[in-house]
Design a protein around this nucleic acid. Structure first.
Lengths: 221, 221
DNA sequence: CGGCCATTTGAGTCTGGTCAACACAGGTGG
DNA sequence: CCACCTGTGTTGACCAGACTCAAATGGCCG
C-alpha cells in the first residue's frame, strides 16, 4: 500500500464533522480496486462514503475526454454527499481503497435529528467551497512550477507533514488536478529537485521528501 | 447605465432564496461608484449585500498582482455572505452599483427563526459551490475560445437571453475571470464575430448580439 | 479640439503542450 | 533465474496557443 495508514480523525479542522460522521452512522464497508469507479457524474446520489484507507479522485470530463480533477480524498475524508439528488462528479479509486458506506437518506435523517446537524453540513459544504475558490486562483493564474509547489504543500499538510510523503496518484492525475500535462508536472518536479526543494526517496518516484517547505511556500506566490 | 435594469427576482432558480432575502431584511441602500471597493479580502464580514442595479466583481490576488475574478454579481444577486467571520474575496463595483445592505448578524438571526432557513442558506452555498466546480473545469481544461464562448452563454443566461446583451465589465475583467489576458479575450471575440456567432451592437464594444447560441454551446465542449 | 481610456490588431516571444525515445520497476511465464 | 512485457516516469526536440509589447483606432469627456 502506497500511502501511510492514518487514523481517521484529522487535526485542527474537522470539528463538527466528527459528530456528523462519528459512531455508527456508517453501516458497511467496501473495498475498491485501483482504477474502479465508485459513482459516476449524473448518477443518483444514493450513498455517502468515508475513506478508511486509500485515495479517491473526483473529476469532470469534457466531451472529448479532457479531464479536470476536482479533488483528491484521503483517509478520513467524506465524499459523495451532494445537496442535490445527483452526483456532480465521477469518483474513482486512485489505489486500492477501503470505504465506509451509508445511505444518503440515513445520514440526512441523522443530521436533521441532531443539534447543529444542519450547521455541520453547512460547514462541510463551505469547506469544499473554500477549496474550490483557492483552486480557481491556482488554475487561472499560477505557473506550472507554482502549481506543483502548491500541490506538494497541500498534500504535505493533509498528511500532517510526514518526513517522507507518499503520493498515491500518478503524474497524470496530478496534471489533471493542476490543469497541466503529465510531462509538465514531471519537469516541474525535476526543477524543484534540482533547486533542492525536494528529493525522491527509494525506487519509486512517488515517495518524496520536502527539503524546503519555506521555499515551496514562497514559490506558491 | 450599461446593463439593463431588471427586476430583482430571477426565473426558475431562486426558490427558497427569495424567502431569505425578501421583505424588509435589507434595511438600507447605498450606491458605489465605478471601481470602488465594497469590502476587502480578510476583512470582517459584517454586512451582506443584494444588488439592486449595477454589477460587482469578487476576486483574489496573488502577491504580485495577478488577479482571479471568482464571480460577477448582477441585479438580484446576494453577495458578501460568508459562513466564517471574514470575507474570502475583495468585492468592487464594476460600474455604478446600487446595493441593499443588512447586517450579517441580522440576516443570520432571521435565518435561524425561519422554517427552512438553514436549508435556504445551504442551497445558496451549494449554488456557489456548483458554479466554482464548473469554473474549475473551464479554467483548467478549456481553450481561450471555449472559455469566451462559455462566458457569453453564462451572461446570456443570467440576463434571461436578451436580444442585445450589455456587458458591464471590461475586457480585462473578463480576462481575469477566464484566466486569460485581455488581448486574448479580444481576439477570441473577434474570432467568434468572424464566424458569425455574434455581432457587436452600436458604438461601444460592450453591447453584443448572440447570433448562434447553438454554435456557442457546441464550442463550449 | 485634445487627452484619456478601452479595445483591436499585429509582430515576436515564451511557456507549456505534443510527440517520441528511453529508463526502470514489477510482474509473468518459460 | 532470466527474458519479456507493461505501466509509469523522465527527458529531449519541436510546436503551438497564449502572452508580451507596441501601435493604431475610436469613443467619451473636459
Amino acid at each position: 500500500m502506497l500511502i501511510r495508514t492514518r487514523t481517521v480523525s484529522r487535526p485542527a479542522d474537522d470539528g463538527q464533522l466528527e459528530a456528523l460522521v462519528g459512531e455508527r452512522v456508517f453501516c458497511s464497508e467496501f473495498t475498491y480496486r485501483r482504477g474502479t469507479e465508485v459513482f459516476g457524474e449524473g448518477e443518483e446520489a444514493e450513498y455517502v462514503y468515508q475513506i478508511v484507507s486509500g485515495a479517491i479522485r473526483t473529476y469532470k470530463l469534457l466531451c472529448d475526454g479532457r479531464r479536470q480533477i476536482n479533488s483528491f480524498h484521503l483517509p478520513g475524508d467524506l465524499f459523495g454527499l451532494e445537496n442535490g439528488a445527483v452526483h456532480r462528479f465521477t469518483a474513482e479509486a486512485v489505489i486500492q481503497t477501503k470505504v465506509r458506506i451509508t445511505s444518503r437518506r440515513h445520514l440526512l435523517d441523522r443530521i436533521e435529528h441532531q443539534e447543529a446537524g444542519q450547521a455541520s453540513l453547512l460547514t462541510l459544504v463551505t469547506r469544499n467551497l473554500q477549496h474550490a475558490e483557492n483552486h480557481m486562483l491556482l488554475l487561472g493564474r499560477k505557473t506550472s512550477v507554482e502549481k506543483v509547489a502548491a500541490f506538494l504543500l497541500e498534500m504535505d499538510r493533509r498528511q500532517d507533514h510526514p518526513d517522507v510523503m507518499s503520493l498515491p496518484m500518478s503524474r497524470r492525475d496530478i496534471a489533471d488536478y493542476l490543469g497541466l500535462t503529465l510531462e509538465t508536472v514531471s519537469r516541474a518536479l525535476s526543477t524543484l529537485r534540482d533547486d533542492n526543494m525536494l528529493r525522491f526517496d527509494g525506487q519509486t518516484q512517488r515517495q518524496l521528501v520536502l527539503l524546503d517547505r519555506e521555499g515551496l511556500a514562497q514559490l506558491d506566490a
